[in-house]
Design a protein around this nucleic acid. Structure first.
Lengths: 337, 337
DNA sequence: AACTGTCACTAGTACGTTCTAGTGGCTGGG
DNA sequence: CCCAGCCACTAGAACGTACTAGTGACAGTT
């Protein structure tokens, strides 16, 4: 308001205003432990800081203290699923409660820009899948110590939503009397690892129940893969399909209906993620709802464990449940819900 | 690898290795203009920097030079539409070509964390809608000068996808012979402004064509709003509905079919955004495809105009087109595509 | 009365970079 | 022979914070 070329307000300005030294300002505002400050001075500093609208310069803080209160979440370059989004919101809130900001980032393959972890020096970097050796080396050379999943430990435990979801799909369909299952894979090659993992979990259920493994087919919402998969499933006597996620489930239903089948009378289809699409589709899609809140909180706990001296959080129980809708039915054609 | 407590490599280390001063290292690595450096020294510095794997400390750079090569994109707290995502990718790439990193950010209402612009001091902050007076004041107090849309200019020109899309929906349905249109609004209250804007544009087309304004109803994928809207549209003689986006279009179709109507024979529905859902739905949904690439490039140009001394980019032409699919037909019941 | 200890602060430095203000050495014009 | 002017660098001062190492003042102990 006053002068045109207004510098930003620094701790020194606040100190002058409050009649103390810059160090005292720092002690008050950061609640530095091991320092005793009289209540009167504390109030004077607080008031002055408020009056001048003082905001500490984060870059300076980072430079001095060597760490930034930022958690970087590296997302893979695939469509952000609905489940991820709610997960993310919980994570953001939980971290914010401890003063950490969450920044999400999707590295682009042919980008000329340096990766974000070089710009932000985040306190923690979280990846949805383990980082490449090169990325880890890059981060370590930048002084980033907290990497999740930890790169040194070899065995990566799968996160529980991937473990329980396919199990539930399988058990649900088997409970409806189906004995010949199909599995629908999405076309996106970037998802391959996860797809295979889910398929194996489904087959595990099949084996346990003494039925043949699921017939896995790729289904895309355009092109010939959909009709082809439907024909092959019919030929193999498949009466129920577990889909990788709700989008894939929709593609299966679409292909089936266009092929002249009725869903669920001729073919039951179950999705995964309980996304809005599942509720919205025609017919509505039975799906697996994952407890994203719990997962988000666990991720936050993990990050804080590395960033601060917090104890390790309890591993999530992986609560998940089937949400029955119109797309599934008993093998005899009765309703499954 | 060598010692355990490895400090990070600084410009001083590189200088020592190359046998020059730290200043020279800076000049070489930043190609500082107005400085002459002999080719021999340049190569020595470059080699030393490579050998030590030197990465400049961004916080220090930011502190000294006062700005960070970061563009902050503030997204509203509503579901990220498909169109936004592709838009974003183009923007990221275009900025990366100039060495800028794009960070997206959605402020959460009850968050205790400071807004991201306080942490990053970004070179530019872009909002999808104008910032509140308070936010602008906050940013200015942090020394952020480049804000898009610029807060000082009163009139905000609507971005062209919002201008053209509803026009196309209207013109398309009228061309199919429909004379009584409906407009489907999503339930999310956060979208209200945009919804009203699109409705007005649609009505503008109606007025120009000499037909009555569209009958606007709210439609949600759950609850009674869907059936209610369908009943009211039927009562008013509506034969075609333009939806706010593809999700809303899906909700309209779902409600219509459950109400016993056939789509498109009894009711035509057109969506907006040409999202995967539109292609995937049963029936597939006619929609409006927006040229997101162009919009992304424009946003990048705008950001660079403010951040560097780049000239203003040409305003986007707002290319958009109708993608006809199964959900629309001539009023006589024939096919619209 | 001297010593120890706590309280309530302050002085001053370090973090790693950018960038201004030099500084010698050399060439060429007067 | 002197000085201007360029070349190829270097010294050193910021930037704003966090934090260590003090420093008086006073209370309590011996």
């Amino acid at each position: 308001m006053e002068k045109l070329a207004r510098r930003r307000v620094t701790a020194a300005d606040v100190a002058r205003e409050a009649g103390v030294s810059p160090a005292t300002v720092g002690f008050v505002l950061n609640r530095t432990k091991g320092q005793t400050i009289s209540e009167a001075t504390r109030q004077r500093v607080l008031a002055a800081s408020q009056r001048l609208n003082y905001k500490p310069h984060q870059a300076a803080r980072t430079l001095r203290s060597g760490r930034n209160k930022v958690v970087l979440l590296v997302l893979p370059d695939w469509p952000v699923e609905h489940s991820l989004r709610t997960n993310l919101e919980v994570l953001t809130h939980a971290l914010a409660a401890h003063g950490y900001a969450l920044i999400t980032y999707t590295p682009l393959p042919q980008s000329t820009a340096p990766p974000l972890w070089a710009i932000l020096d985040p306190a923690v970097v979280i990846g949805y899948k383990p980082f490449s050796v090169q990325d880890v080396a890059d981060m370590k050379s930048l002084g980033i110590r907290n990497i999740i999943p930890p790169p040194d430990q070899e065995v990566v435990e799968a996160s529980p939503d991937f473990v329980l979801g396919p199990r539930l799909q399988g058990e649900y369909l088997l409970a409806l009397g189906h004995t010949r299952l199909g599995f629908a894979k999405p076309a996106d090659p970037r998802l391959e690892e996860l797809v295979e993992a889910r398929l194996q979990l489904l087959n595990q259920v099949c084996t346990e129940a003494g039925v043949a493994p699921a017939v896995a087919k790729q289904v895309d919402f355009q092109g010939p893969s959909g009709p082809l998969a439907i024909a092959q499933w019919r030929a193999e006597g498949v009466t129920a399909v577990a889909a990788y996620n709700d989008e894939t489930a929709a593609d299966v239903i679409s292909a089936a209906v266009r092929h002249g089948l009725r869903v669920p009378e001729d073919l039951s289809v179950v999705g995964h993620d309980d996304s809005p699409l599942a509720a919205r589709y025609l017919p509505s899609i039975s799906s697996v709802a994952v407890d994203n809140e719990q997962l988000g909180l666990y991720a936050a706990g993990l990050a804080l464990h590395y960033a601060e001296e917090q104890p390790l959080p309890d591993p999530p129980t992986g609560a998940a449940e089937i949400v029955p809708r119109e797309s599934t039915a008993h093998i005899d054609g009765g309703h499954g819900h």
